[in-house]
Simulated assay, not measured.
Amino acid sequence: MKKIFYVLAISFFPLMGKAQFCNLNKNATLVYVNSNRETNETRIDTVTVSNVNRKGDYTWVEQTLCNPAAQKQKSFYEGYNTVKFVYEPNGVTNRILIDEKWGVETMKNLKKELDSYQNSATKSNKDFDEQLANAEHQKGAIAIPLKADAAKGEKIPDGRYSLKMDYMKVSFDLSNGKYEGFEKVTVPAGTFDCLKVSYKIKANVLYLPQTQYITQWYAQGIGLVKEEIANKKKELTQTRLLVAADK
């Protein structure tokens, strides 16, 4: 996995004068209100900055979803309730959508669901873990580079991730990504100057395809402030708004 993200992080400049699009304060909290138009449900999520790890010139940040009720409703690309960022020395904040750890956790959860459905073990845990350890089954990673100097209309690099084990296969493609410029956004937590990004995610989990169009607004020093998700028909299905945040 290190090789993947060293490719993402190729520039080496001082941190002075750079601002990150995430919260670097360990134990800081962010509170969101999530609305799902398809199920007509609204949920309050509390996210904690659970880990801040500085490796050389890079800062790796993990945010963990705290409330148990929300943990049962996993987003298909959110790394099973963990949001990850890598802050580079050139001032770019990479929002990691999918990586090696995500793939391993996905396969383990799929195996549990299949075993439960069949009321038996599809494969011994030892054999399963040995296959997961084989890096040849995994390819790629997907990240959104958040940068303060992004030009409006500039393209976000495409990304692809795939993992295959026997008949179990997952793949994700990010495309049509672009920087939409900077906007003032008002949410329950206040008004923020945000970098707006949009992209398309096409997922295929156990040969069940799904497409989402995602628009997000990120504020420096905080992270995600607003998110809108639309379905394949580009109909708005979900929204997420920041309610409160530790700065």
Rank of each mutant, 00 (worst) to 15 (best):
A151H: 06
E41C: 11
A151T: 07
E100D: 06
Q118N: 13
E154S: 11
H137R: 09
V86H: 11
A151P: 04
R43V: 11
L146D: 03
N90A: 10
V170P: 00
S50E: 03
N109R: 15
V47W: 11
D149M: 06
Y80S: 15
A133C: 09
D127M: 08
Y77P: 09
S171Q: 08
S116N: 15
T93G: 02
Y87L: 07
L146S: 02
P157Q: 00
Q118I: 10
G91E: 01
I156V: 11
D129N: 14
M107P: 06
S50I: 06
I98T: 06
T106E: 09
N67A: 10
G91C: 01
K139I: 00
K101N: 10
G159F: 01
E38S: 09
V49Y: 04
P89Y: 06
N125V: 09
R95F: 09
A133L: 06
F128R: 01
A141D: 05
N40F: 04
G91Y: 02
E62C: 11
A141C: 08
A148K: 14
L163I: 02
L65K: 14
E100G: 07
V170G: 04
E88R: 13
T39N: 11
L65H: 12
A121G: 09
G79K: 03
N90P: 09
E41W: 09
L65N: 09
D166F: 00
S75R: 15
N81F: 03
Y58N: 14
E78R: 07
K152T: 09
N81K: 02
E105Y: 02
K123A: 11
L97Y: 01
E41Q: 14
L97E: 01
W102Y: 12
E113H: 14
K126H: 10
A150W: 04
T39D: 08
E154G: 12
S162E: 03
K84L: 01
E113G: 14
K155G: 06
K139M: 00
L114M: 15
F128N: 00
E88I: 08
L110Q: 05
E154R: 05
L146V: 04
T59L: 15
K147I: 04
Y58A: 15
L132A: 08
V104S: 07
R160C: 09
T64V: 08
K74C: 14
M165R: 05
G153P: 05
G91P: 04
A69C: 04
K155L: 07
Q118A: 13
I156E: 01
V49K: 03
A150V: 04
D57Q: 14
E136C: 00
T93H: 00
N90W: 04
A141L: 05
F76C: 15
V61R: 01
E78P: 03
